[in-house]
Design a protein around this nucleic acid. Sequence first.
RNA 1: GUGGCUGUAGCUCAGCUGGCAGAGCACCAGAUUGUGGAUCUGGGUGUCGCGGGUUCAAAUCCCGCCAGCCACCCCA
Length: 413
Amino acid sequence: MPRPEPIKAVRGVRDIMPADRPLWRRAERSAAAVAERFGYEEIVTPIIEPAELIERAGEDSDAFAKELYRFVDRGDRAIALRPEATAGVVRAYFEHNLNQGPQPSRLYLIGPMFRYDRPQKGRYRQFFQLDVEAIGSAGPALDAEVIEIARDWLSTLGLGDLRIELNSIGDHRCRPAYLEELKAYYRPLAENLSAESQRRIEQNPLRLLDSKAEQDQPFKARAPRITDHLCDECSAHWSAVRRLLDAAAIEYVLNPHLVRGLDYYTRTVFEIFPAGAAGQQDALAGGGRYDGLAEAEGWPPTPAVGFASGLDRVTDLMAAGDSSPVAVVVLPEGELDVAASELARICRTAAAVAVDYETRSLESKMRSASKRGARWVVIVNEEEASRRVARLRDMTQREQTEVRWEELPTRLA
RNA sequence: GUGGCUGUAGCUCAGCUGGCAGAGCACCAGAUUGUGGAUCUGGGUGUCGCGGGUUCAAAUCCCGCCAGCCACCCCA
């Protein structure tokens, strides 16, 4: 009789298994601890949002639509699985009147995001991000603050060897003029550029600067730099951010080719890489200022800055420390399920306990307990159970003694 | 979405031009005379990703699909 196909996980998603969870938990906990130390509060927003919210935040391209997990629900509403956290956090900020409270609102969020792209290692259709946002202030100190949070968090996780890349992309006042200059620079060079870059000269010239195409590289170095064309306000902001980072002893490198493709991004942009990484693929965190987003969502213009970091990549880089979750294994000799579970219940007041209920030889159970890394083994047979005693074996000392059940918790503590 | 590589035991993989499915590790059982990590002995645990096709015969050749990986696109 043919077995039906076993049902497997949806393409591009993965299970995070018990062996990896402690690592993830460490990353999540220290994110919360660091953010809270800076006065940030946790917020949880839905993973589904009106598709329009997401689409307005990403007006740009066909590619955007292509990678959005989008569907129509039973009430004919267009729904999107959130591809990033910021749009939803900003929505919640206004919808729950945080804009009426003390500014800025300092918020962080940890949760799953969704992107419908082709999966490969480290790129999943469901992935997890830490998102830190300071909404409601245009102050450069907040730019520096979120960078410091990102840096502190990664350092805490043992990923302290970082390269922080920094740039400013101006705002609606100074950027248009700069873009004209950039177009003027690139137009005569058009036929030397990649097809994609040729298209971008008129469509999205800023993106010419971060082109990865080989033939575009020579022209980037001579391209006009936006940091040379900032208006007074942006210029002051830009130097203030750097001054604050210097004062905090946070090292960074200026990368004039670091940009964002969407209009609502303003001024500061940054990305954080592990020190060894060369490729753009390897960013551990990225963020910046998005003073135009609130307005793009239809809310009052409100300045904000933040960053997001992919936990999949971060946990991947963290050294895996292995500690056995089970301290004690109870081994009944014979048909003693009831006694063994009572014994385990007693031991559990003091330590993590698992019972080996399998009907196999004691030797085999010992082997298995040993492989699990159990510190203690508690063995009991029928005669001992009737006297309410058990053999407590110290697996590291290879010694065992007879112990009364009631004494076990103190012996295991 | 585009291009390429891959898919055989729980894991890593071998299986040349078609001829009854293999290794190491893991796992299970036993021995080493009471109860563990070492050693020894024994055990293959498998819809060869799925579905078609060619053939006397397909893991092997052909087509389609699915999945993973790499690069691109993208990373809001």
